[in-house]
Simulated assay, not measured.
Amino acid sequence: MLSPRVSVVIPAFNAAATLADTLDAVRDQSVADLEVIVVDDGSTDDTRGIALRYASQDRRFRCISVPNGGVASARNTGIAAARAPYVAPLDADDLWHPDKTARQLAVLMARAEVSMVYCSRRNVDAQGRVLKTISKATLSGWACHRMTAFNAVGNGSAIMFRKADALRAGGYDTRLRQQGVQGSEDYLLQIRLAAMGQVAVDGDYLVGYRKSANAMSNDDAGMLRSRMAALRIVADELPELAATARATYKRCQFILALKHLAAGNWGKGLPQAADWARGINPKLVGDSLGYLQHRRRTRDPVAIASEPGRPFGTYRCNEAPEEGTSGYLERMLAELEPLDLAYGVGRAAAQSLTG
Rank of each mutant, 00 (worst) to 15 (best):
N151C: 11
F161E: 05
A166Y: 06
I159E: 11
R177A: 11
G156I: 09
H145T: 03
Y187A: 08
F161T: 11
A143T: 13
R162C: 04
A152P: 00
R146F: 09
L167G: 07
G154T: 01
A194P: 03
F161M: 14
G170M: 04
R192M: 10
V153I: 15
L176F: 09
Q182A: 15
G141H: 11
G180H: 07
N155C: 13
M147L: 15
R146Q: 12
G154S: 01
A195D: 13
R192L: 09
L193K: 12
R146I: 04
H145F: 15
V181E: 03
G170T: 04
S157V: 04
E185I: 04
T174K: 02
R175M: 02
G141N: 05
A149G: 03
A152M: 07
G170I: 02
Q178C: 00
G170W: 12
I159L: 05
Q182S: 15
G141C: 04
Y187C: 10
A158Y: 00
L188V: 04
G141Q: 09
S157H: 08
Q179E: 11
R168A: 15
N155E: 14
A194R: 06
V153L: 07
A194Q: 07
I159H: 01
A194K: 10
I191G: 03
M196A: 10
W142F: 09
R192I: 03
A149F: 09
L189N: 06
S140R: 15
E185Y: 08
T174G: 01
K163S: 06
G183N: 10
A169Q: 11
L167P: 02
M160H: 02
Y187N: 01
Q182L: 06
L193H: 14
S157T: 04
T148M: 08
S140P: 00
F161I: 02
A166K: 14
N151G: 13
S140T: 05
T148K: 06
S184P: 03
R177V: 01
S184G: 06
G156Q: 08
A194S: 15
N155R: 01
L188F: 10
C144F: 00
Q182T: 10
L193Y: 12
G180P: 02
Q182Y: 09
L193G: 13
K163P: 00
A169K: 13
A166C: 15
W142S: 01
L167I: 14
R177H: 03
S157L: 05
R175N: 01
S184N: 14
A194F: 13
A166N: 02
L167K: 12
Q182I: 07
L193E: 09
G171E: 02
S184Q: 13
F161K: 06
L188W: 12
S184Y: 10
R146N: 05
G141V: 05
H145N: 11
Q182H: 12
L167D: 13
A149P: 02
D173W: 05
L167M: 15
L176H: 09
I159C: 08
A152E: 12
M160G: 03
A166I: 12
W142I: 01
V153G: 03
R168L: 13
R177N: 04
R168F: 07
Y187Q: 09
L167E: 15
G183V: 03
A143K: 02
N155F: 01
L188S: 07
N151E: 13
F150P: 00
Q178P: 00
R162N: 11
Q190E: 15
L167Q: 15
A169C: 14
R162H: 04
T148F: 11
